[in-house]
Design a protein around this nucleic acid. Structure first.
Lengths: 275, 275
DNA sequence: TTTAAGTAGTTACCTTGGTAGTCACTATTA
DNA sequence: TAATAGTGACTACCAAGGTAACTACTTAAA
């Protein structure tokens, strides 16, 4: 609980000492420098430079006198101010980086994306810039984070087809579900994501390894084509299954899950990716 | 020009090396690590850790291979991502600091505010939280920055009276102008600002010294009352002047500006405040 | 009235980690 | 061979964190 507060304050460019001092002032104020040091755990020998830097930034107020008193700017105001500063900086950044409007249309390279958040961000960008068709193979967990982007794409007139693992519901996309219990989910060795946008751009990779998740993004025809085709074949298969499940199950033994299991990736493959 | 770009990137938590590497990738991509080092001026021996940290943050993309290629995430996307992160952090901060809703209603202390921006921010907060009446003595330069807050206050039903130095126009407030040429402005030794909100809160100080500007904020009755009264007296005087200018000018010589000049603060007073 | 304890503030020094900067070394490729 | 590509081992610097020892003043109890 308290850890999150400190983390949050550090993200608002507080140092540890500054965070401690500010929080103890929020709890009780006004206080003398000595008292802030005592309550916050910041060494007395440091408290005045810490309070000074807070005062100069406008995060606390100083009441001068023989023993000055310190008081915090209310958290709400502080956040409001920080937000405005940040917004200004973003606008400045947009202006000064505007000249670098690049096409970056290389059909030769394969780009590596590290980290689950980054991967999902790239997938979102893909969806957002798509014009005609999206094929998406995705797990329930990731689908939830992509739903609003997908809905927007559909509203733009993009044809969205989703092959999903898990129990998802969608009123806007063509949906194909790979039903399965949770036990089976574990066996897969991890969740992956594959997206093909406008048959010209692909992101594919593992997303269940947190920071160690890896994906590739490419416009390389030699990859876009086969990956897109694989998904299309999967769709064929599912259409066939829908209509002819019984005869197929009979010919492959008691169920098709075992067949799937036979060809699946060995769970140990993870070890190659996780440091 | 280029300095601002580096400054801006540093504010988006780039290090100097990271900024150089990213900018050179924006100018030309994809590049090998070696080429990035060459174009950007980052030492070759550092370029890979720099590019790694950029890649892990998702600011650039890596195309693996015998000699990996690097490509930047377009500036627009980068800023969009940063903005989302920042917004999330602000919302988190608001939640975790919500418990510290303090009244901070001390009528005993006088709080020192350092820096022009911080002072104006405090004045804005005062205006925003006012309920009944605002008396504001202000220069044209500062008035412009406060106008929208003042307008909102009036729309809330707050009675706003402004004593202004300079040529300002306002269709919503009671406005009293101290007309004067620019030569006279210089003589004052600096611009000040005084605001009294709801007769219970006062901010007063100098705002023309940039970072060295100083102001006091207080709810101390011993200060709020006299300061508010001084402004009211100023208003009286201006009303009187409006109607009886001629006889007064006759009794004090050719004009009243000279009288004002006689009693004004000596310009050297600045030296006490500027380091 | 001296003593001890608490309050208030300052000076000096030390450690650590991250960033920056340099040199020297090995491969590989054209 | 020269340019390209990559690595390891240093040094320097600074901000942040951390500790110790000092002065000076006030208050309350022995």
């Amino acid at each position: 609980m308290k850890k999150t507060i400190f983390e949050t304050l550090k993200n608002l460019n507080f140092t540890e000492y500054e965070a401690k001092a500010y929080l103890s002032l929020l709890e009780e104020s006004p206080l003398t420098g000595y008292a802030v040091a005592k309550n916050s755990g910041v060494p007395r020998s440091k408290i005045y430079e810490v309070l000074d830097s807070l005062a100069i930034r406008g995060d606390i107020l100083v009441s001068p006198g023989n023993t000055p008193q310190y008081s915090p700017v209310p958290a709400k105001e502080l956040i409001k101010n920080r937000r405005m500063e940040a917004e200004q900086n973003f606008e400045l950044a947009e202006k000064s980086l505007a000249e670098f409007e690049q096409s970056a249309n290389d059909r030769e390279n394969i780009w590596n994306i590290m980290g689950r958040i980054e991967i999902l961000q790239k997938v979102k960008d893909c969806i957002a810039s798509s014009k005609t068709r999206i094929l998406l193979e995705v797990w329930e967990e990731e689908y939830e984070e992509l739903e609003s982007e997908l809905r927007q794409a559909v509203n733009r007139g993009v044809n969205v087809t989703i092959i999903a693992y898990g129990e998802i519901v969608s009123d806007f996309a063509n949906l194909y579900l790979h039903y399965m219990g949770h036990e089976i989910t574990e066996e897969y060795g991890g969740r992956w994501i594959v997206i093909s946008a406008d048959d010209s751009e692909v992101v594919a990779g593992i997303v269940s390894l947190g920071k160690d998740s890896r994906a590739a993004w490419t416009r390389h025809v030699g990859l876009v084509m086969p990956i897109t085709e694989v998904m299309i074949h999967d769709l064929y298969l599912m259409e066939i299954m829908k209509k002819h499940r019984k005869p197929l199950e009979e010919s492959f033994g008691e169920n098709l899950v075992n067949l799937r299991r036979k060809f699946s990736i060995h769970p140990d493959f993870k070890k190659h990716y996780v440091k």
